[in-house]
């Protein structure tokens, strides 16, 4: 009975998704058509996994996700990624053409593929978030909006809530992170500029993730971000969480962040030992962190060298000015 019913539902669903797929993707390429116009709400989840399929290039995944789930116009996406509208239009139509021709499924992946594919979806959203603030298109806000949609669509996945929490908690401090054009470090930030409502929402999302027994990379990072906005920051706990993140991901960047927390918890000497074991020579933050630790240890000449190396690698104006100020101070 159940089997027969399930089979009937499966068939219905298949027929429907097939029809939807045809509707969604069978548009003449010249016509600028929105995939989401014809999508009924309960198909958004399938759409997420189609847009973020690993057989598509990452930049295409990002563009498709913003276009179909975020509801940005092609022109807006083009502006956000500094390419011409024509280039973005081509990127989107190529991606849609591949979905159709290569038979990228319009479905939620089966259980054995789900963890990997969900990770790909979350990576796309986090990438959009990290593309940052301030441009004519606010991609951080757009990523948070996408995160909220995913949390509704996948209420039982702790990593989804973890990512949403992480983005909310980071974004809550955006107003305090700059003074004019200048970068302000966490310890010097004006807390009255933090968005209390968003911190509360972030912590609620984190609580949901933890209640679902989440202990994945996004949940861990959200837990860290939550501790960082406490009145008194629990650095030993943050160092321990980064340790767990390192074990989980093997990421040297996470290990560098652990070192920063260790510097606060145990002092610069212990932190420097961690930093000096890392093979991240092309990474600006390795050198700025080393410089900071050396400065605290009174090793001024070495600190200056490290600041200069960080400056060579710094890309944005505010980061350069921050490092120049530091260099002038030692």
């Amino acid at each position: 009975m159940t089997t027969a019913r399930n089979r009937a539902i499966d068939r219905l669903r298949r027929d429907r998704t097939l029809a939807a797929k045809t509707r969604l993707l069978d548009v003449p390429e010249a016509v600028e058509q929105e995939l989401d116009e014809t999508t009924i709400p309960d198909e958004r989840l399938e759409l997420v996994f189609t847009c973020c399929h690993p057989a598509l290039a990452t930049e295409a995944q990002v563009a498709l996700t913003l276009r179909t789930l975020g509801g940005l116009s092609t022109d807006e996406i083009a502006r956000a990624f500094l390419v011409s509208p024509e280039t973005m239009k081509r990127r989107l139509s190529r991606a849609k053409a591949k979905i159709k021709a290569a038979g990228i499924p319009f479905s939620v992946p089966p259980d054995h593929l789900l963890p990997e594919r969900l990770a790909a979806v979350l990576a796309v959203v986090y990438l959009i978030f990290n593309e940052g603030y301030g441009g004519r298109v606010d991609l951080a806000a757009e990523a948070i909006r996408l995160g909220r949609v995913l949390a509704v669509l996948m209420p039982d996945e702790p990593e989804v809530h973890g990512l949403l929490a992480l983005m909310l908690l980071h974004d809550a401090r955006r107003q305090a992170r700059f003074s004019g054009e200048d970068l302000v470090l966490l310890e010097d930030q004006d807390r009255s500029l933090w968005d209390a409502t968003q911190i509360e929402q972030g912590r609620a999302a984190l609580d949901r993730a933890l209640a679902l027994r989440g202990r994945g990379p996004h949940v861990l990072q959200a837990a860290i971000a939550s501790l960082q906005v406490d009145e008194r920051v629990d650095w030993p706990q943050i160092a321990a969480l980064y340790g767990e993140l390192v074990r989980l991901t093997g990421s040297p960047v996470a290990e560098l962040n652990r070192a920063v927390a260790v510097a606060e918890a145990q002092g610069p000497e212990a932190a420097l030992q961690i930093v000096d074991r890392l093979a991240l020579d092309d990474y600006q933050y390795l050198h700025s962190t080393r410089a900071e630790l050396l400065r605290r240890l009174g090793r001024v000449d070495e600190a200056r060298t490290a600041y200069r190396r960080a400056l060579e690698l710094a890309r944005t104006g505010p980061e350069r000015r921050f490092l120049e100020r530091r260099l002038a101070e030692v």
Binding site: H53, A55, G103, I104, P105, S107
Partner: peptide, 9 residues
Amino acid sequence: EADDLDAAI
């Protein structure tokens, strides 16, 4: 012959 790209992969 496969249902979709996932099966082929």
